[in-house]
Write a protein that binds this DNA or RNA. Structure first.
Lengths: 206, 206
DNA sequence: TCGATCATACAAAGTTGCTTCAAATGTATG
DNA sequence: CATACATTTGAAGCAACTTTGTATGATCGA
């Protein structure tokens, strides 16, 4: 990574936005490799092939870089989740598989895992709150090509409520696997049995 | 607490079991007052009015005292929860109110709160695992005088599954209140809407 | 006498409160 | 981009203190 000595020194190739994106990508790579605690701004700058000052140009503080990493990670995850869920045709299956997908995928993404375990006051919690997670979940569900109306999910509140319950279950399984090894099928049975009935027939007031 | 200089020194009043119970009670009081980190075996002994050696007589290690505290606390909590739930007559309401009761009650019990936040490898986690919590929940539900059969909950698996979902939701609300202040009614609506339908009519395979 | 406790002592392990040194953050200037 | 620098943070080492866990003999009541 010894670029910079004979290359361009003025305006970089690509837009400002591009440089910003490259820094976030570099930070993500560093965190994935060395962990959050062992990642310094110098490491990120080196990985991105820029100097520390350039990083400060786009992010006033180190925590802003990390917030951007968290948000970018969540967005990327949302995209993959949506893509994955598009393969299912019933509302119940989409609900079931969203939990399974989350439980199996998130632990492989170090910065997302950190995000979920973050405690009160943690800057990571400020970056993406659980409320934002629920909103993200609702957005994902809404975009999945399924006949939600016939499943009784129509209003924004319906999506928000369903997303919140599913997200809470999936967060819970990350922290309390319950058995040393929970199989995908055990997860499916649980969600299908206890959330599924709500997705058949109108939900209405209860 | 300067007893011991002029009191009895031989066999104590009450049975062996009584002394053990008194130590657990004293430890609970200490933890409630000073917190887990600031509670030492000496404190517990002094609070119980015995010497450290007597504590060691009943509990080989300090962690055994704390395990006993955790288990006793969970049992006591289960008793109060069962009593509370006896006031409700429908299966759905029992499910709903069990979550509300848990969310509102547990934070007031320092040693239970610690238990729920305990991480992997924490001795508190060894004391009462999440699997034990789910089992406790199932036991509670089973004992509440409600016509579970007509709600579709009959087998041990039904109780275990329902208890697991409810416990997970309640644990989740402890850690992610979602909004700064979640009202009891918001909690009720969520659970009633997404778990309730499963408790009307037979559950069966899905 | 027996069984449980008290009293005291003590080694090993863990905590706390520093001091010191290196690394990282944030800012300035050319 | 490159270099320089004040301030903050983190890690490493170390001494004083606390706590754990164990041992041993004396005391008291049944």
């Amino acid at each position: 990574m010894h670029m910079g000595h004979h290359g361009w020194q003025g305006n970089p190739p690509g837009t400002e936005h591009e440089a910003r994106r490259r820094i976030v990508k570099a930070a993500t790579a560093c965190i994935d490799r060395a962990g959050l605690a062992k990642t310094s701004l110098s490491d990120v700058a080196q990985e991105a092939g820029v100097t520390r000052q350039t990083v400060y140009r786009y992010f006033p503080r180190l925590t802003d870089v990390l917030s951007a990493v968290a948000i970018a990670g969540a967005e990327e995850f949302a995209g993959r989740m949506e893509q994955h869920l598009a393969a299912f045709t019933s509302a119940t299956e989409v609900a079931v598989e969203s939990v399974v997908f989350g439980v199996r995928t998130v632990p492989r993404e170090p910065y997302l895992g950190l995000l979920l375990q973050a405690g009160e006051g943690d800057f990571f919690t400020d970056a993406v709150t659980s409320a934002q997670w629920f909103a993200l979940g609702a957005r994902i569900l809404r975009n999945v090509p399924v006949d939600w109306a016939s499943a009784g999910v129509t209003t924004d509140d319906d999506f928000a409520g369903l997303a919140e319950v599913l997200m809470r279950l999936f967060l819970s399984f990350l922290q309390h696997p319950s058995a040393p090894t929970v199989t995908d099928d055990q997860l499916r049975t649980l969600v299908r049995r206890w959330i599924g009935p709500a997705l058949r027939g109108p939900i209405g007031r209860v």
